[in-house]
Simulated assay, not measured.
Amino acid sequence: MFYSNQQAFLLENIPCNNVSCKSVRRMFKVIWELSDLNQIKDAVVATFFDIYEDGILDIIVLSKGSSNKDFAIHTLKNNFEADAYFVKVIAGQLSQSAHFALQLPYNVLGLGRSANFLDHLYVGIPRPLGEKSVRKQEWTAIIPNSQLIVIPYPHNVPRSWSAKLYLTPSNIVLLTAIALIGVCVFILAIIGILHWQEKKADDREKRQEAHRFHFDAM
């Protein structure tokens, strides 16, 4: 997210289509046609932020007010809905915190439509000059649609780093619960019908036995 001439805009990462970026194969495309974003005038800073903690990045824009000393904060909800999975990693490490740098204290990793566990997740922090060992730790079997909070302490002992995993509820969880309840009700209905048929057959057999005994007694 960038701002230019007090107008915020988006940059889309697309495949390269000219000679200037042939070596890197990627380029940025400026997207101006965003009605909600264009309505915010005199933008100063714009950034992404997960407001609803659902793995979808929303937009926060800081703009000037009626005077240069007044500022206003605008939030734009991302209405993009998709059955995609994600993992949010929070390590509390920012490369820059001054000069209007609104960097996120976490990284959102998109997993696409694969609901499988994340096999390997590596988290690392910068090391001081002269140190040869790599400050990196690995976690395995991470559940999709979750938040992993990493506590990198002590900094020079990655084996002692701890992590806390928090699940993010979504509509998929609700649909899964409804489907599970529906399957259980269906199985119970089948069991009830079979039990009723078996009981009915037993009653018929008992009546036949009683009738046979009465006939033999006569």
Results as ranks from 00 to 15, higher is better:
Y85A: 04
H74G: 01
G130A: 05
V108N: 15
F117R: 09
I56Q: 09
T176I: 00
S4I: 05
Q7P: 00
K69F: 04
M218S: 07
A46Q: 12
S4H: 08
F49M: 10
F80Y: 11
I40C: 02
V89R: 10
K41L: 13
V183G: 00
F80Q: 09
A210V: 09
I178W: 05
N38V: 00
A177T: 06
D54H: 11
I178G: 00
M218R: 13
F28D: 08
S114W: 02
K206P: 00
E209T: 14
A179S: 13
C21L: 12
A82H: 11
A98L: 15
I143A: 04
L94A: 09
L62G: 08
E138W: 07
F9C: 04
I56H: 01
F71D: 02
G192D: 08
T75M: 12
A84M: 14
A115Q: 05
F86W: 11
N18V: 03
V134M: 06
G130R: 03
V61L: 03
L174K: 08
S67Q: 08
L34R: 13
Y3K: 02
C21Y: 12
K22P: 00
S4E: 05
P152T: 03
D54I: 07
D202R: 15
V19L: 13
K88E: 14
Q7D: 12
R204N: 14
Q7G: 02
L118P: 09
A115V: 02
E53D: 07
W161G: 01
F49D: 08
M1S: 09
E33N: 12
P15S: 01
L102I: 03
N107R: 12
K41N: 15
P154V: 06
N78R: 14
C184F: 00
Q39V: 04
E131K: 05
A72S: 07
S63D: 12
S67K: 06
Q7C: 03
V173E: 15
L148T: 04
I125T: 07
R207Q: 15
T176G: 08
S160N: 10
R204C: 01
Y3H: 00
D50A: 11
K200T: 08
F48K: 08
D42R: 15
L148V: 10
N116E: 10
L94Y: 08
R26N: 14
L174G: 01
D216V: 07
L37T: 01
L118Q: 02
P169W: 04
A98T: 10
D202K: 15
S63K: 07
D203M: 13
Q39F: 11
M27D: 09
I178A: 13
V89Q: 12
P152E: 02
N156C: 00
N18K: 06
G124T: 11
H214R: 15
R25N: 09
V123Q: 01
C21N: 14
P15D: 06
L180E: 04
N38L: 05
S66A: 03
I125F: 07
A91I: 09
S20G: 02
I149K: 15
N79P: 02
Y3I: 04
I143W: 00
A98N: 13
S23W: 09
V157I: 08
K164I: 11
T75E: 10
W32A: 00
S4T: 06
I51N: 01
D36W: 04
V89N: 05
C21V: 03
R159N: 09
L118K: 11
H99C: 05
K88F: 11
D203Q: 10
S133F: 09
I151Y: 13
F9N: 12
L11P: 13
D70H: 05
V24Q: 15
